[in-house]
C-alpha cells in the first residue's frame, strides 16, 4: 500500500518537472499533507465540507470544492466520502441538480431547495475529472447528467450572449424585471471544456468566450471592478435588491480566469490594480460609495493577488503563500486551488 503511494508521488514529481501533465496520469497538484490538514478541519465523517465561516453549514459550492481538491490531491477514498454526502443529501432535486444549502441544525437539513449553478458546475467538473482519472464510469455518468441539465435549464441566450444563470429559477428575464441577472464569479472557466467533452455543445465555448468578454466589459466605479451581481437587461448594471459590491463572490474571478487558461494580461492587470493593496491583501468594495467593505489579509485570499503579480511581473510567491495552514473554509479552499494552479502551470512562481 505505502509503496504504491510513493510510486505515485514519484511519478507525479517526474511529470511536474517535465511539465507535461495529462489528465490520464493523475498526480497530486494538492500536496497530500496540505489535503490532510484541510480535511482534518473542514471535512466531516459524513462527507460534508463544513463552512466554518458561515455558521458551520454546508453547500453545493463547498461540496464541489471538496470533490475537486480531493481529486487534485489524488485521494479517491476521500472523494468517495464527499461524494456520498453530496449525492444523498444535496442531489435530490427532481431535475437532478443540487440543493444549494444544508444546515445541520435545521429540519429538514436542506434549508433552500434552489440550486446554485457554480456548485452544480464544480460538482460536475470534479466528477468528470475523477471519472476519467480513476476510470469510474459512475462518476462520469453522474457528471454528464448534471451537465445536460445545466445546458437545458441554466444556460441561456440573451442580448447576443450565452449566459450562465446563477440558478434555474429566479434570475431569468421572465423571473425578474431586471433579468437576466448573472454572477460573474460563477464562470468556472476550466470546467467548460470538460463539460463539452461530456455533453458536446457549442454553448460551452460560447459561455467561455462571452464570459471572458463580459468580465472585460463590466467595470464599475473608479476601481473598474466587476460586481457580484449584475443585471444584463440592457447595459450591464447593478442588480436590484442584491448586494452592490465587489465582494467575496467576485474575488474568485481572477483565480478562475487564470485556472481556466484565459490569457488576458490586460484584464488581470486591471483586476489586480483594483483589488490588491500594497501588501497584496484583497480589498472588497461597496460599489455605490466606492468605499472599502473589507481588507482581507488571510494568505488564502492574498495568494490570488500574488499569483496575478507573478504572472504580470514575474514576482515569486512569498513563503506565506507557499506554505498552507488551514484557517477558514473559504480562504483555505482558495489557497489550495491557487497552489495547485501554480504547481501545475507556473512552477516558476514557487
Amino acid at each position: 500500500m505505502n509503496r504504491r503511494r510513493i510510486l505515485a508521488a514519484a511519478a507525479g514529481l517526474v511529470c511536474l518537472f517535465l511539465g507535461g501533465i495529462t489528465a490520464e496520469a493523475q498526480q497530486a497538484m494538492v500536496k497530500p499533507t496540505d489535503w490532510l490538514a484541510y480535511k482534518a478541519k473542514f471535512l466531516s465523517p459524513g462527507g460534508r465540507i463544513i463552512d466554518d465561516g458561515n455558521g458551520g453549514i454546508s453547500h453545493s459550492e463547498g461540496q464541489g470544492y471538496g470533490l475537486l481538491l480531493a481529486y487534485l490531491a489524488g485521494n479517491a477514498a476521500d472523494f468517495e466520502q464527499i461524494w456520498y454526502f453530496t449525492r444523498t443529501e444535496l442531489l435530490i432535486r427532481d431535475d437532478g441538480l443540487a440543493a444549494w444549502s444544508w444546515n445541520p441544525g435545521a429540519t429538514p437539513h436542506v434549508t433552500d431547495i434552489n440550486d446554485a449553478t457554480d456548485g452544480d458546475l464544480l460538482i460536475a467538473y470534479a466528477l468528470a475529472q475523477a471519472g476519467k482519472g480513476w476510470s469510474r464510469s459512475d462518476y462520469t455518468e453522474a457528471a454528464a447528467k448534471i451537465a445536460g441539465t445545466l445546458l437545458d435549464k441554466a444556460i441561456v441566450r440573451s442580448g447576443g450572449r450565452t449566459l450562465l444563470l446563477p440558478g434555474v429559477s429566479g434570475f431569468s428575464a421572465a423571473d425578474r424585471s431586471d433579468g437576466p441577472v448573472i454572477n460573474p464569479s460563477y464562470w468556472v472557466f476550466e470546467a467548460f471544456p470538460v463539460m463539452n467533452a461530456l455533453v458536446p455543445s457549442t454553448k460551452w465555448q460560447e459561455l467561455f468566450d462571452d464570459g471572458h468578454r463580459l468580465i472585460s466589459q463590466i467595470q464599475f466605479g473608479p476601481q473598474k471592478l466587476p460586481a457580484d451581481w449584475v443585471s444584463l437587461r440592457r447595459q450591464p448594471k447593478l442588480a436590484d435588491g442584491l448586494p452592490f459590491e465587489f465582494g467575496y463572490n467576485s474575488l474568485r474571478i481572477p483565480l478562475y480566469l487564470m485556472r481556466g487558461g484565459v490569457d488576458d494580461k490586460a484584464l488581470l492587470a486591471r483586476l489586480h490594480a483594483g483589488m490588491a493593496d500594497a501588501s497584496s491583501s484583497i480589498r472588497l468594495y461597496y460599489l455605490s460609495s466606492n468605499s472599502v467593505k473589507a481588507t482581507l489579509d488571510d494568505p488564502g485570499y492574498r495568494i490570488i493577488n500574488h499569483i496575478m503579480a507573478c504572472i504580470l511581473d514575474g514576482s515569486v510567491l512569498p513563503a506565506t503563500a507557499k506554505s498552507f495552514a488551514p484557517t477558514l473554509y473559504f480562504p483555505s479552499t482558495l489557497h489550495l486551488l491557487g497552489l495547485a494552479y501554480v504547481t501545475e502551470k507556473h512552477p516558476e512562481c514557487l
Partner: peptide, 16 residues
C-alpha cells in the same frame, strides 16, 4: 449507519 465512511473505506481498500 456511518455509510460515507464505509464507502470511503471500500474505495481506499480498492486503491490499495
Amino acid at each position: 449507519a456511518r455509510y460515507a465512511e464505509v464507502r470511503k473505506a471500500i474505495t481506499a481498500r480498492q486503491a490499495a
